[in-house]
Amino acid sequence: MPQYPNRQFLDFEQPIRELYEQIDQTKKMAEKNTKIDYSSNIQQLEDLIVEKRKEITANLTPWQRVQLSRHPDRPYTMKYIEKMTTGFVELHGDRNVRDDKAMLGGFAQIDGHTVMIVGQQKGINTKMRQQRNFGMANPEGYRKALRLMKLAEKFNKPVITLIDTPGAFPGQEAEERGQGEAIARNIYEMIRLKVPVICVIIGEGASGGALGIGVGDRVLMMENTWYTVISPENCSAILWRSWEKKEVAAQQLRLTSTDMKGFGLVDEIVPEPSGGAHWNYTEAAAYLKDSIVKALNELKNISPEDRVNQRIEKFGRMGFWNE
């Protein structure tokens, strides 16, 4: 993960940047005055940074939570695969149109289990971001994901999906190749998949683009992520007829992990390092691995038929109405 001064700070993270700057200045002073020992001052400031990280994430608005989920330093799918698994073999292509770089997947081993991991991937620099299409998959991305999930099913390996997308790509070619059909097919096939399926929102969980790889026995959300039917910006544009209401939209949509867990729409919240996953990739991946392994062990003792029926019933219970 990037170290200061390469670290990026969101507006509400500015107090942390200031502390880093103070450390910098203290270090410079230490270089000048070699006779005075500044190490305790630096240690104090470093402790303060940890405190500040905790403090900031304790009181975030839903919109700030959305911002955190999009933090430019946040770990993406590939990073979690690197940190959680061994022996990852990436598998490419949908066997039809092309290899969609916004969606990646392959076999890997996690805590002794061979699993299929599939997830959207965002780029880590400008060039990569374009190549990965900002994590917005085309239909071939969803079909590649399905191909890999069916492959896992054939060899009786559990499926783990890592979700991080601002949405399925809204392009002309995406429509020509059936973006709607691709997502629909994935949802339909995932709910019937005979192997255990664990889905985790690791960043942005935007609508059909997220659900297209998001139907599982367990759906987990990392602490600083969001998951709902539309991005707050687009919701603001449609319902408020203005781009200015994204904060209100974020609040009204109840899209945070706490809300989603409270509604019973996700099963578990995966904790993050204080301040967010971007502060410590290893720690973030360790928390995630714990949750995944726990779920895997719970699910492997259920028969495939029961698992599928429970999955269908679980989603079948979702909703509210008067009668």
Partner: peptide
Amino acid sequence: GARMMESAFSLMQLAKTSGKLSQ
């Protein structure tokens, strides 16, 4: 499309209905 006023609950109807189609 989905009813935004029901937020994630409306999104989950995609999975709910697909499950029924499976049956």
